[in-house]
Write a protein that binds this DNA or RNA. Structure first.
Ligand code: MN
Ligand code: MN
Ligand code: ZN
Ligand code: ZN
Lengths: 136, 136
DNA sequence: TTCAAAATTTATAATGATTATAAATACATT
DNA sequence: AATGTATTTATAATCATTATAAATTTTGAA
């Protein structure tokens, strides 16, 4: 029937997450907004469409998404976590002037090449900070 | 007179930080404990020797140390900041089993080589997570 | 369909690291 | 000593996140 929502549902089912309405809407938001939103940002954005949604559901949902590796949690030294629908490894740059968090490419084999030997590395985060071209 | 404390005092003076007793003791602790301690860890460790020290002073001092680049603040996805007296660039690995945060070498030119063009990069953090050799 | 167990969501309170504020104390300079 | 400045302290506030338990929805027999 509805191709758009079927795709989102399938993403959830593939990760063994039951596709409730709220989970679908939260995933839809993340797919449409690759801006590394916070839990609160998502909650506020969805409140219009889903007036009954609670903050706890957003937190719960993001926790299960993160656990199942459907999203990647970003902690770039701020006091709130941000969530990234792009799970392929890449670097993050935070502009200390405008606050924007940019993506930048890092070759996967380069990331592998710096891994400390004898450690089993499961997660790799590269966080840079400074001033973005717009603010320079 | 006292070589040990003179060295620590000079480190502070070089960074334009007035060498108060508490600041000296906090810096001494950081120099002797390259374990990426939290503010609370430092506070508790110093409480024995300086019974009157307040948590606020530890926070204030770490903030000024960070601002003057005498220490580096580490936010590896935990809810508390950690502080590193080693400011030369290097990577951090957190063992999700035992919680230890290890250092690992990263060639400075390699870090520079992945910087996004047209961005002014001021800070570079590489955080890996997984299982350390001891826990494997 | 009916009903009970399981999963999800909600409302509410608690947690805990950090920050804000203002008073107290220590330090430096005249 | 007196005065202004810097540091420290005690205390309360902030705020993202987590804990808890009740309410609601979904599921899968019977
Ligand atoms: Mn990203
Ligand atoms: Mn380190
Ligand atoms: Zn910017
Ligand atoms: Zn370990």
């Amino acid at each position: 029937m509805n191709d758009h929502y079927d795709k989102i549902k399938n993403l959830l089912i593939q990760k063994n997450i039951r596709p409730s309405m709220h989970r679908i809407k939260i995933l839809e938001y993340l797919l449409a907004n690759e801006t590394h939103p916070t839990a609160d940002r998502i909650y506020n954005a969805l409140s219009a469409e889903l007036p009954t949604v609670s903050r706890m559901t957003v937190y719960n949902t993001l926790a299960i998404f993160t656990e199942r590796e459907l999203v990647h949690e970003i902690s770039i030294g701020e006091n709130e976590s941000r969530y990234d629908i792009v799970t392929e490894p890449h670097g993050h740059f935070k502009c200390t002037s405008c606050g924007t968090i940019y993506n930048f490419d890092i070759k996967a084999d380069l990331l592998a090449s710096i891994e400390p030997v004898d450690f089993k590395v499961m997660e790799r985060d590269v966080y840079f900070k400074g001033i973005c071209p717009k603010c320079l």
